[in-house]
Design a protein around this nucleic acid. Structure first.
Length: 282
DNA sequence: AAGTACGCCAACCGCGCAACA
DNA sequence: GTGTTGCGCGGTTGGCGTACT
């Protein structure tokens, strides 16, 4: 297929937008909507390509955009969501109201990657996969998380509308690893101390090797509590609350957690539990 | 004070996908 | 079924400001 010539080949302007251009674009969209982006610049009297207009509007001029620095909570949410979604910036942005994919992408590359890199947890976990030099070894603890509300939304993103919560989702080959290192920096919890006990028991059991099977993804999530993850796998007895930071607004009220305190809690949890979480790869 | 290195971020580029004729 | 068009996404670039030497 033949692509339409790009801006510069048609004598259209490139580079930074001037305040005058911004004003023209804002005025036009406010009175007419954006409609067809390709036709918009001509109709609005701008010497820009439609793509450039769309980008300028979506990333800068739209009234929905929240300007200013990212909060710690937002950054943590990005880290958390990035672990689940990968470089799907638009999907991440969809969960951070007022933030654009471009902005999130920039923050990730300029701040968050460094933050994660600089975070070096103690390497004293009994079953840390980095220590045994054999990531394929069956002794690696594998714990699967699911979320009854937002996680199913994410699954919809991946598999399409209506694909969650009941339909089969991801094969075991589509799982990816999330290390405790980053999880520990971001999670919040309801502070259920029974979990610590359970994890202590896990730690004392050399045979604790939860396995993931396809049936996990077919679980009916709709009946579960909306504020929580169930840590499942084959060990259904092990369940605890695990609200993601990304759903802080809706979940914090329910669980009454404290972010900063909980980081220490989760750090301890993962140092005890062994560290490897299996999440879907998207 | 001048030159250089680095970080940040707005904008661009190319590709893939969906809708439509 | 095929070609075309438009949109959205993720990766990358380039300009500007600041820090450092």
């Amino acid at each position: 297929m033949v692509r339409a010539p790009c801006c510069e080949k048609m004598g259209l302007k490139k580079g930074p937008w001037t305040p005058e251009e911004d004003q023209i674009l804002i005025s036009y969209i406010q009175s007419n909507g954006h409609g067809n982006w390709r036709a918009l610049p001509k109709l609005a009297g701008l010497l820009r390509c439609g793509k450039s207009c769309r980008l300028r509007w979506a990333n800068y001029l739209s009234p929905d955009i929240k300007r200013g620095n990212f909060t710690r909570e937002e950054e943590d949410s990005i880290i958390q969501l990035h672990e689940m979604l990968g470089n799907r910036w638009s999907a991440i942005a969809a969960r951070l109201p007022g933030r654009t994919d471009n902005e999130i992408k920039n923050v990730w590359h300029t701040h968050l990657k460094k933050r994660l890199k600089n975070y070096q947890p103690p390497q004293n976990s009994k079953r840390h996969p980095k220590n045994n030099n054999d990531s394929k070894a069956p002794s690696t603890s594998q714990i699967t998380l699911k979320n009854s509300h937002n996680f199913s939304n994410i699954q919809e993103d991946i598999n399409g509308p209506g694909s969650s919560p009941n339909s089969p989702q991801l094969s075991s080959s589509e799982m990816s690893t999330v290390t405790a290192d980053s999880m520990a920096t971001t999670a919040v919890t309801n502070g259920d101390q029974t979990m610590v006990k359970q994890l202590d028991e896990m730690d004392s059991s050399e045979n604790f090797i939860p396995e993931i099977d396809e049936s996990f993804w077919t679980d009916d999530l709709s009946t579960a509590d909306n504020s929580s993850f169930d840590m499942a796998g084959a060990h259904e007895e092990l369940q605890f609350q695990f609200p993601f930071h990304a759903m802080k607004q809706e979940s914090m009220e329910m669980v009454g957690g404290n972010l900063e305190d909980d980081m220490d809690f989760w750090y301890n949890v993962f140092m005890k539990s062994g560290d490897l979480l299996e999440l879907p790869e998207f």
